[in-house]
Design a binder for these strands. Sequence first.
DNA 1: ACGAATTGTTACCTATCGGTAACTTTTTAT
DNA 2: ATAAAAAGTTACCGATAGGTAACAATTCGT
Lengths: 73, 73
Amino acid sequence: MDHRIPDADDLGHVIRDARKAQGLTQDQLAGMTGTGRRFISELENGKDTAQLGKVLLVLAALGIALYALSKWK
Amino acid sequence: MDHRIPDADDLGHVIRDARKAQGLTQDQLAGMTGTGRRFISELENGKDTAQLGKVLLVLAALGIALYALSKWK
DNA sequence: ACGAATTGTTACCTATCGGTAACTTTTTAT
DNA sequence: ATAAAAAGTTACCGATAGGTAACAATTCGT
């Protein structure tokens, strides 16, 4: 499934859904990505000050690919 | 055109390409998004500590949509 | 309903993000 | 080639991200 990600809330939902679909706890996901459980919790709840690199780490760990769709190039 | 975004470098390229395709300077893009020119410069050069919310602002300002492609849901 | 597991939240703390502004380097136009 | 514009970079500095750890609230399975 693909989801448009206009804001941090949407990303949080996608991440939470994917994590649960794979039967992972926040603790496990944090461990897999070298982050902390607090970060995962806040991220899933739409924190928009989350750092890009860590967000991409989490997405990769969950097997979620990000696409940028530009009408310009 | 759509681009996969595995890391911050790729995002930077997409943003730079879109900005140039629209004939904008970093200064103008910073003004449009309430950020600073330094942020745009670093973002285009792949800074992975950029904050998610600001990144999404920049993408929106450039008319770039983000999609998350998950095989799980 | 009850206990355990999971998640949310707070305090504490160090590292650093990013705005402004100045200066340097690179790119672009003529 | 040269001057102007754009982009890169640095210093300065207030604000805050996020790790750990402890506690509270919530969600589970049975």
